[in-house]
Amino acid sequence: MSNVLTISPSPHVHTDDSVRKIMYRVVLAMLPALAWSVFVFGLDALRVTLIAVAACMAFEYLIQRFVMKVTPSVNDGSALVTGILLAFNVPADLPWWILVLGAFVAVAVAKLSFGGLGSNIFNPALVGRVFLLISFPVQMTTWPVTKQAAVDATTAATPLGLIKEGILNGKPLNELMGTLPSTSDMLLGNIGGSLGEVSALMLLLGGLYMLWKKVITWHTPVAILGSMFVFGGIFWFVDPEAYLTPVFHLLAGGAMLGAIFMATDMVTSPMTGKGQLIYGVGIGVITMCIRLFGSYPEGISFAILIMNGFTPLINAYVKPKRFGGQK
């Protein structure tokens, strides 16, 4: 017997799950998409990812160590996840210094200034991304072409970008349709776009893994994609001439990445299934509004950030079903 016994309140057993394991599962779930983007964008994708991860982890360590003067918690894996997510949200050939700046905003401004993991209101990677998008609109919206694309160009546009630009220039939709990639290309990820968002299929794969490992629940992704589908579907149904099919909307842009990896971030999403449904529908509707009526081609980052802001409110009003509660 060790000389003094330990006394603690019950329970005396604990699951073998930990924050670290959860984070590493998220990382694992992102690997297929990362592998795909290395496949289509070449080693550039890997470089960007590594820089983003290194910068996020370094900022987290340095700030916690020297500014906040707490024990650094870099090895909990959350900075790693933020880094990869940030990389997923930028073009694969982004200059390194812009990335580092984005990482700084993500980690220092969006996460640590709120108190660190668990206290932040907004998804750090998204704050970094939106900051970069506003500060460096040109670099952030010039996408490299995929290796597989047969076109002879150095930059590519995203499908959503094509549409938005075309409509702004007054071209009718059916003319634009011809320039769009095929559904199978979009599914696979043979299109222009941010590093991690191109392949809907790989993202879905990661999502299924996370569902299986219970890292996420179905509520948020289903609510986002479902509401986007319905919302987009209504417009398409009313006027198929002027609006794109809902399937296109689901596959284009950051919808999959946002719904599966960004919006499901535990810290910034609501606590209950019901709350997550409200949150997801909010994201879906706002995204579609921005896509259809806004001046940006893509809006899911903004939509998620807006709904992040509503999360505390949702948590305050949407309560789990109490046992034995009258209702």
């Binding site: 016994l5 330990t6 603690s8 005396h12 057993v13 604990h14 930990s18 924050v19 959860i22 918690s73 909990d76 959350s78 108190g115 660190g116 993991l117 668990g118 206290s119 535990m266 810290v267 910034t268 999403s269 609501p270 606590m271 209950t272 309560k319 789990p320 079903k321 109490r322 046992f323 034995g324 509660g325």
Partner: peptide, 26 residues
């Protein structure tokens, strides 16, 4: 080896406690 608890960390709002609570509490 199993007697002591793991170190306490910040709540990551994963909502597992909410899902696990048999009384529907938070």
């Amino acid at each position: 080896a199993e007697a002591r608890r793991d170190g306490r960390m910040a709540c990551i709002r994963c909502s597992r406690c909410v899902t696990a609570c048999p009384m529907g509490l938070e």
